[in-house]
Every structure is written in C-alpha cells, then in structure tokens.
Amino acid sequence: MVSNGGRPNLEPLEFNLNVLEEAFSKLKRSIWVFHLNTGSCNGCDIEVLDVLTPYFDVERFGIKLVGSPRHADLILLTGPVTIKTISKVVRAIKAMPRPRLVLALGSCGVGGGIWFNTYATLGGYPNLEKILKEAGVEVDKVVYVPGCPVRPEAIIYGAAVLLGLLQPKSKHRRVTAVES
C-alpha cells in the first residue's frame, strides 16, 4: 500500500527474534523520541513541549527529542490520525528501527476523542494498527495515555509504564448496580 519511494526495502524478510528481544531488554532508559502530529489540535503538542522544558525536564531520564524517526526508539503519536496523514504516518513508523515503540497520547490518539466517527479521521491509534498490519509494519509495544490534553506528568508516567518501570493503575472494572 505504501510505496518505498523507489528505495530498496532495507528490512530483512526474516527478522531475527533473538536480536529483537535482546534490543528490547536493553531499552530501559535513554529512549529517543520522535514527535508525530497526526492532525491534532496542538493541545497535546504543547504538553509534549512542556515535558521537554526545564520545568519537567525529561532529559533527567535520558529522554530526548530527535528530528527524524530513523533515530527514534519511540513515537509520540498525537491526534486522531486524519485520512490525509495516514500515508505519512505509516512511512514515519516504518522508518523507525526495531524495536518500535508507540505512545498514543491524548483522547484523540487513544480513541479518537470528539473526532471518533467523522469522515476525515481514522479515530485514533487502534484503527491505525490495522492499516499498519496491512502495510507489513510491526509495532512492538504500544502504551495508551488518555487525557485531553494529556498532563505532562501523565506523559512521564506513560513513558515509565512503557519501559516497564511502573505497573499501570487502570484496571477493567465491571460492577453491578446495587439497590440503595
């Protein structure tokens, strides 16, 4: 579906899983992030910038913003993935080296937010995942960070959950309504 722009496909067809697992186990700190806006309202993008300022300073964990997905371990995906951006998003994620990590930020990134069923958007990362599978792009780990916009602390918390430093607090809860 997504053309490679005439370049040869550099990804080997049979990927060595042992190498991948080794790389994944080494990925505990100092992850480099690439900020990918897929048509968001810029609320989450401003919060991502907040995280990088000296006030919240994620560089104390070694997290650094890079300008190219080829250098990145993690993609900070904001926005509900508009139809126009699909091809670019798939190309950006494909350009990342394995192991690929994705942090879906904000209500839009997780479930589409208020654009969950419009004609112009996919409605968040879960729907993009199917397209990525069709394009043969594998993502190794995804962490969903709800919030509208996400708090800078929530992004730091999400990154910690992604790296396995913290256990997620959210649990699926199903309760029966009780008579008062």
Binding site: V110, G111, P126, K141, V142, V143, Y144, V145, P146, G147, R151, E153, A154, Y157, G158, V161, L162, P168, K169, S170, K171, H172, R173, R174, V175, T176, A177
Partner: peptide
C-alpha cells in the same frame, strides 16, 4: 483527580456498570 491512566491494554480503559 485521577490522571495517571496510561496502560498497554485498551480493555483496561473500560469501566462498566450493569443494570437489570
């Protein structure tokens, strides 16, 4: 005031109340 909601399982983000 709970905002630390990050999780890797989409199902963890559902809360349900069942009525008869």
């Amino acid at each position: 005031r709970e905002f630390e909601l990050a999780t890797w399982e989409l199902g963890d983000l559902y809360n349900e109340v069942v009525h008869t």
